[in-house]
């Protein structure tokens, strides 16, 4: 029901995160995830991060 894509957070600003999935970048909402930092990996769905993923398991 839900296409998800793992992506790396490369920037954060005002509740939004810039994520990078092997070179494809998009700004998404990071409002639903606490304590997000650049370098973290997230699962992205329809323009928001729905979960933080452990880095070594992301790729």
């Amino acid at each position: 029901m839900c296409v998800g894509l793992a992506a790396k957070v490369v920037g954060l600003k005002d509740g939004m995160a810039l994520v990078d999935a092997s070179g494809a970048k998009r700004e998404i909402s990071a409002e639903l995830i606490d304590d997000l930092e650049p370098g973290d990996y997230v699962m992205v769905h329809a323009g928001i991060a729905i979960a933080k993923i452990d880095e070594e398991e992301a790729v």
Partner: peptide, 13 residues
């Protein structure tokens, strides 16, 4: 496939 093309395709199914 170029990785960035793969990334875009992943986002958009």
């Amino acid at each position: 496939v170029d990785p960035a093309v793969q990334g875009v395709c992943g986002m958009l199914g």
